[in-house]
Design a protein around this nucleic acid. Sequence first.
DNA 1: GCGACAG
DNA 2: ATCTTGTCGC
Length: 243
Amino acid sequence: MALHDWNLTPEAAIALQKRLAPSVRREDTLGEVGLIAGMDIGFEDGGETTRAALVLLEWPSLTLVEQVVHREPTRMPYVPGLLSFREIPAALGAFEQLSQRPDLIMVDGQGIAHPRRLGIASHLGLWLDLPTIGVGKSRLCGQFGEVPSAKGEWAPLTDRRREEDPSDVSVDARGRVTIGAVLRSREGVKPLFVSPGHRLSLPTAVDWVVRCLGRTKLPEPTRLADRLASRKGEVALSGQLSL
DNA sequence: GCGACAG
DNA sequence: ATCTTGTCGC
């Protein structure tokens, strides 16, 4: 299927997610990490234009080495659970302009913390066959208790087991599985929802997000991508170090 | 049938 | 996500 054939009905999109979800890898397959990408989407013209922003940071300096913005007409509406079909086409357009392949990608949105375990981070990871982490600012599904107040600590995000979950996942006494972490990325601020996208485990996903944290709520990769996607013009070259 | 609902 | 002014705090 071509990139632009994603003119699916909600039913077809859901069927596709169920078919793809089993291919998502939740084990660590990370190699040496030297480049980390951050991806986010923004909109213009009241939503008619989709703007994909991509930043590439060098690890461990977290120095910005490349940034890309790609614009194209919006072709799908926002539907909870089907976000990837609306945003991935533009994201891929941005990746085509990137001169280097990242070793890890942090995406604004959920990974497997999704009703069918295929949030935008997982879907993008599958498509690019690269390790991805979902870094959401709010919850899509799942339940969680009180989140510790110290930076770096987190509470598990759990959900009832779904057919899309692997046969070997650990299920608790109540038939629930852990799909992500509600992370305190900064004291006194609403927590982040971190979940594995593709090719890495939850502990590893949380580790990388924490390692990329500065003084702000969002880790550097998505913080810079966020800024590039929201503000107009390309504003990331300098004045990036908030560490 | 009644809520919940990434960006 | 985006539309928007002022305001609180480091």
